[in-house]
Design a binder for these strands. Structure first.
Lengths: 202, 202
DNA sequence: CCATTATTATGACGACTGTCATAAGGTGGC
DNA sequence: GCCACCTTATGACAGTCGTCATAATAATGG
């Protein structure tokens, strides 16, 4: 979630990006509009110009962006899967390991922005929460499709995708609290056989 | 998390209890000290008296209380398991269904306080986060023991407990965002066979 | 060159927040 | 009575928040 292409981003894009970064680190409530502008090197006056809907709109766009980012991550990891490892367990392990590395690299400072918005729903009565729901859906859908492509029967693709997102999200939470990645690796190891068994019974 | 015994609780206990309630509904940042006192029908002046450590201390005690509550819930569900259903899948299903009912009863307003504290770590540099870590441990430990008692080999008890807490926590997150309990039921259904299979290979 | 629009700058507003200082009740022991 | 102690009451402090009003500047198209 740190790498971005070489092209320059507009201040508006940078603010959405920065909002997602700050939200997943500090939570929604603790992330101020002024902080977002400063982190994005964007003028403070642009906030009310690009986001007339206020903080709700900014948070909503940030979480939507995060959902699309997570979806891209799934398809990218699927495409990068070695031909010898085209099993669902390998895909999940790759996803988990990517989050694990991120945890270690940032000293467990970063969580998932979608989770942060879901938990910190004090503001934005509905708009932010529905955006979080769509982000989860946007994340789960390509994951289910990837599982099916790896041999999981179509009927179980969506269910297993829900399970994987749940386990990943929960393990990320535990890992952050304990400052230890063992929950992430444990989840990957325990769920791997289940996934491959589901794929074998084509 | 709503039922409490008949005995009267001291203002201090009520404030810890109320803090946990408000935190899991609104998040840490959005829960004000004044709100806690009002919700607990406790005098505002008692806050600085009982919690000289300030908000950090109150949040820490609230999440510790929540962890112990979750642990109690595990042992209680294990004890209440019908003799015919002494399988790990049944225990997990019972836990999931309890959270599901809570979601529906509160219109998805309540999440898990431990998750809220973990995500909203802006305040309380370490004390709150370590309290959250201990709460997770306090929750996972009796769950692992219960799995072992239901036939899971001792070596896998802890791992499976970590998986179950992760999946439950993540599914709770998704359910809250989507205002739909399908993630919870899906997780229970998908994980049930895995658990019973692990128990059969005594 | 002008007019129109898009963007940025700046300061202020009211409403919160956690925390503290200070002092007042309340209760039981002597 | 009086003292000590636990508890509560109350107001104020400095800070931050999201939002808005207003104006200056930059860019754009005629």
């Amino acid at each position: 979630m740190t790498e971005q292409g070489t092209r320059t981003y507009s201040p508006r894009e940078r603010m959405v990006f920065s909002a997602a970064q700050l939200i997943r680190r500090d939570g929604v409530g603790a992330t101020g509009m002024r902080d977002v502008a400063a982190h994005a090197d964007a003028p403070r006056g642009s906030l009310q110009h690009y986001f007339p809907g206020g903080k709700d709109q900014l948070v909503g766009e940030a979480v939507t962006w995060a959902g699309r980012y997570a979806a891209r991550r799934v398809t990218r990891n699927l495409a990068a899967l070695p031909a010898a490892d085209r099993r669902p367990s390998r895909l999940f392990a790759a996803l988990i390991s990517q989050w694990t590395e991120e945890c270690l690299a940032t000293d467990f400072a970063f969580g998932c922005p979608v989770a942060a918005v879901t938990v910190d729903c004090a503001d934005a009565a509905d708009s932010a929460r529905t955006a979080a729901a769509q982000a989860f859906a946007c994340w789960r859908e390509p994951l289910g499709a990837a599982l099916v492509e790896l041999g999981v029967p179509e009927a179980r693709g969506a269910s297993l995708a829900t399970l994987l997102v749940s386990a990943l999200e929960g393990a990320l939470l535990i890992a952050r609290a304990e400052r230890d990645t063992h929950a992430l690796t444990t989840v990957a190891e325990e769920l791997g056989p289940l996934l491959d068994a589901a794929a074998l019974s084509h």
